[in-house]
Simulated assay, not measured.
Amino acid sequence: MKPLIVLIIVFSISIFAIKLATSKYDFPLSARIAMCAMLCFTAIGHFAFTKGMSLMIPDFIPFKIEVIYLTGILEILLGICLFIPSFKIYAGWILILFFILMLPANIKASIDKLDYQKGTFDGNGLLYLWFRIPLQLFFIIWTYLSTAKY
């Protein structure tokens, strides 16, 4: 829920700031600014809640802590790449793939009732998926629309 709030608030602020600065609305740029802010926000979780997030990763994947750090760094780098014209479309497609690949970890966390912030197994459970799956789809559509070449 917090990443969605960050996304919406930053988008709202940036759409009006860009309008004030340029006298035009730039929805794709505002969407990329918001996505970058949201990715940086979620990346912080990779470093602050590493142990809990590592419990989301399926057992057959080795080096769980390193994977968490790597994906946190990847989120920051992809967020930055959203502003580099020659990388914007590639970053968008990689982010879409990233969001798709994250879904099994979120499903596992829900099944295990994981609270990744505490690293405990007393989280929201399967009800969380009713929010998380549509949210993942929303992030995918948001990313596509803000990076697609028209």
Results as ranks from 00 to 15, higher is better:
I111F: 10
V6I: 15
R132Y: 08
I133M: 07
L39P: 06
L101H: 10
L114Q: 09
A31G: 12
F87T: 14
T50C: 03
D115E: 14
S14K: 04
P58F: 07
G79M: 13
L126E: 03
C36S: 14
A48T: 12
L135A: 11
K149N: 12
K113P: 04
E66S: 12
M1N: 06
G125L: 00
F11D: 04
K113F: 05
A148N: 07
K118C: 05
T42I: 00
L74T: 15
M35E: 06
G52R: 00
K19H: 08
F121Q: 11
Y128R: 11
K88Q: 15
F121L: 15
L101W: 04
S12D: 03
F83N: 13
Y90A: 15
F83P: 13
A34V: 06
K118H: 10
P134I: 02
I140Q: 04
L114G: 02
A34S: 14
I57K: 01
C40A: 13
S23I: 04
F121K: 11
I9V: 14
G125T: 00
R32C: 09
Q136Y: 08
K24F: 10
L114P: 02
A109K: 00
I107M: 01
Y144M: 01
K2H: 07
S30R: 01
T42Q: 02
I18S: 01
L78F: 13
A37N: 07
I84F: 14
C36K: 01
I5C: 04
L4G: 10
K2N: 07
F60H: 13
I57L: 00
A21H: 07
P58I: 10
P85S: 15
F98P: 02
L137W: 05
Y128E: 10
F27L: 12
F63E: 09
G72E: 01
P104E: 12
F63T: 08
D115H: 14
G52T: 03
I65W: 07
E75M: 15
M1V: 09
M38R: 00
A43Y: 01
K113H: 12
A31V: 00
K24Y: 08
F83A: 14
I133C: 05
C81G: 14
F99E: 09
K64G: 09
